[in-house]
């Protein structure tokens, strides 16, 4: 397995270069003017200002030249400067990635665990009231638009009941802890501030639930289908006939075999949410990669678009690798070579 992992890791830079090349030329050939991020409407009519901006941002060079410069800079770790925030893209990404990871990990944990449990229960009590309820809950989760559920839950739990805080990673009046990892829950613990830890955890609940509900819907339906298939197998009947306890049958015998397709979808969803949790980030004012990506795309902020592409590409490549490794653990018959 080690050789397999090393081989996949070696291939990653080449795959990333392919992603970068395709994304670079597609983004630079879309309709629209990147100067929108740099120059206001009035000064777009001023040739001196336009020329100065193009020279400053290298937009006066040919596309192949821009590509060569960009790739050359990447080899030194320079992702360029965002046309919109005017800060190094690497700095923007480092500021925002922990926020996204903190949210996505919490949502994936909540969504995957509840989804798996719900899927198992639904399969175990097939066609009963419990099954129908579980399926309805999953259906609502996977089909309700996040912007709607987010706003409704915010209204109910934050405005009407006052049980949970409003948008943001922390109360806007609170100073964040010193940045160590960028994960507020971890940094507040590392700084020994339990009050801040609780506040950051508290702020994580609603967005993680909203995002996790969608994940739960997808996972539970998949687990249910896989479990139904597995539960009808002879070895399950045999296990029950031998007097194995139901929990052992469900989780040790059935679930483990039903997890392969679920692992694929969990891995894919995790990678997707790194750049795809846009609506949740917008509604909850969560300063993550998703909202950064959308702003970059809307403003044709090429360096930022490329930075997000690299992060997204890396997320997919790594999650694929981790999913493959997880297969081997879930099913010992699978050998990675």
């Amino acid at each position: 397995m080690t050789r397999y992992i090393i081989r996949r890791l070696i291939a990653m830079p080449f795959l990333l270069l392919g992603i970068i090349t395709i994304a670079f030329f597609i983004s630079h050939n879309t309709r629209g003017d990147p100067l929108i991020s740099i120059i206001g409407e009035r000064q777009m009519e001023n040739p001196d200002v336009v020329a100065a901006a193009k020279a400053r941002w290298g937009l006066d060079k040919s596309l192949p030249e821009q590509y060569a410069i960009y790739v050359g800079n990447l080899t030194t770790g320079d992702f360029g400067t965002s046309l919109r925030t005017k800060r190094p893209v690497a700095q923007d990404l480092l500021d925002r990635l922990p926020a996204t990871l903190e949210l996505v990990i919490a949502a994936m944990l909540a969504g995957s665990l509840t989804g798996i449990v719900l899927g198992v229960i639904a399969a175990r009590f097939r066609d009963s009231g419990i099954d129908h309820l579980a399926r309805l809950w999953a259906l609502i989760g996977s089909s309700t638009p996040v912007f709607w559920s987010g706003l409704i839950l915010l209204y109910v739990f934050s405005v009407a009941l006052g049980w949970l805080p409003g948008p943001g990673r922390l109360n806007a009046r609170t100073l964040p802890p010193e940045t160590i990892t960028g994960f507020l829950t971890i940094d507040s613990l590392l700084s020994g501030n339990l009050q801040l830890f609780r506040e950051s955890l508290y702020h994580l609940i609603l967005p993680a639930l909203v995002l996790g509900w969608t994940v739960m819907g997808i996972v539970s339906r998949l687990v249910r289908v896989s479990m139904l298939d597995v539960l009808s197998q002879d070895y399950i009947v045999a296990a029950r006939a031998r007097g194995a306890r139901e929990l052992r049958v469900l989780f040790n015998h059935a679930l483990r075999n039903a997890m392969i397709p679920t692992l694929t979808i969990i891995g894919f969803t995790f990678a997707y949410l790194i750049t795809g949790a846009v609506l949740t980030e917008t509604i909850f004012s969560w300063p993550g990669i998703g909202s950064y990506a959308v702003d970059a795309a809307r403003n044709l902020d090429y360096p930022a678009i490329m930075g997000v592409t690299i992060v997204g590409g890396m997320a997919f490549l790594l999650s694929n690798l981790l999913t493959d490794i997880a297969y081997a653990f879930a099913d010992p018959r699978i050998r990675l070579r």
Binding site: L151, L154, Y155, S158, V159, G166, T282, F284
Partner: peptide, 21 residues
């Protein structure tokens, strides 16, 4: 004074109503 980025008008209203802004 803190200006907190809140893009959506509804979210801004909710922040105000919940005392967060």
């Amino acid at each position: 004074i803190v200006i907190k980025h809140t893009k959506d008008a509804v979210a801004q209203a909710q922040m105000l109503q919940s005392g967060g802004a």
